[in-house]
């Protein structure tokens, strides 16, 4: 569905060339749900804008459903839906008018466009706002309208740029319900950017991590976490120094640290290692006060890959 080779985009900023996206090689199959994860400025949106024909690549190529984004942009546009970071609806236009216009833009008759618009007003719970100017809607309402606009023509491939930013948890859950239902119904391929770790983790089947314009990891969230970060095991005992020595002797543990009475370590499979550790401690007559296995997050993956946490990389206090 998506195939890029060496996709690159440079920008000129104050006479300096900034490489926003550097040689992206990406393959996405039909029906996949892929999250593009990375800090702000990593090149996520730039990549998306190239894939959606909004931005011309500096070099490299990208094909969407077999069509080149440069030489066959019109064919690409017919197959994709795009929900950008901005507001899809013009502020001076009425909600329903914009939905109907969108249908007309994709070549539906006025009647079909009106029906689609009304259907979407229903599913996105926007009926009461149908005759309001888009500019008068709240942030969450506008975002729902943006999504509705991207779904009018039921595209084979849906691009979403930070779809849930600015939404409260309930709206975010609603949004995901709609996206997943659409997928079940039509087999839509979904490609989204996000900097919400939890969203990439729980919703996407595949996570592509991007940093400084390059893909640095690409797998399921489960495998990324197991391979790159591992589980965190914490035990609290009456003898932390001895605990640490014993933990170090178990072959699969890494990064054993002591903090007060707590000893922490990373292991690929915490559930299996913990009993081994507890038996060893018991044999050494170390009194265990508590034991805990923590599943890693994608932030741990990012940290393992780059040495920075995603939150640090964005300059946002954790």
């Amino acid at each position: 569905m998506i195939r890029t080779r060496g996709l690159t985009r440079n920008f000129k900023v104050k006479r300096q060339i900034v490489e926003a996206v550097r040689g992206l090689d990406l393959d996405v199959e039909k029906g996949e749900l892929v999250a593009f994860l990375g800090p702000n400025g990593a090149g996520k949106s730039t990549s998306l804008r190239m894939l959606t024909t909004l931005l011309r690549p500096t070099s490299g190529e990208a094909r969407i459903a077999g069509h080149d984004v440069l030489s066959d942009a019109a064919a690409v546009r017919r197959r994709i839906g795009y929900v950008g970071q901005g507001n899809g609806a013009g502020p001076y236009f009425r909600v329903r008018d914009e939905l109907v216009t969108q249908g007309r833009c994709y070549g539906f008759s006025a009647e079909v466009s009106r029906r689609r618009a009304d259907d979407l007003l229903g599913t996105m719970e926007l009926e009461d706002l149908a005759n309001r100017d888009a500019g008068s809607l709240s942030g969450g309402q506008r975002r729902r309208l943006d999504i509705a606009l991207g779904l009018v023509h039921q595209p084979d491939l849906l691009f979403l740029d930070e779809p849930s930013s600015g939404l409260d948890p309930q709206n975010r859950a609603n949004l995901w319900e709609h996206i997943l239902r659409l997928r079940d119904l039509l087999g839509t391929t979904v490609f989204l950017t996000t900097h919400y770790l939890e969203e990439a983790d729980t919703k996407a089947e595949r996570v592509v991590v991007i940093d400084h314009g390059r893909i640095i990891a690409d797998d399921t969230a489960e495998r990324l976490k197991a391979d790159l970060a591992g589980d965190h095991v914490t035990v609290r005992t009456d003898n932390p120094a001895r605990t640490a020595r014993i933990a170090d002797r178990i072959p699969s543990t890494r990064g054993v640290t002591v903090d007060g009475d707590a000893v922490r370590m990373a292991v690929p499979d915490g559930a299996a290692v913990l009993p081994v550790l507890l038996r060893a401690l018991d044999a050494a007559t170390v009194d265990v006060r508590s034991a805990e296995v923590q599943r890693p997050t994608l932030d741990d993956v990012f940290l393992a890959l780059t040495g920075r946490s995603l939150r640090e990389a964005e300059g946002v206090p954790a």
Partner: peptide, 17 residues
């Protein structure tokens, strides 16, 4: 200009129009 900065022009530009 407002549609360019707001994002609604992008939405139109991605359609086949």
């Amino acid at each position: 200009m407002t549609e360019m900065t707001g994002g609604s022009l992008d939405r139109m530009l991605v359609t086949p129009v």
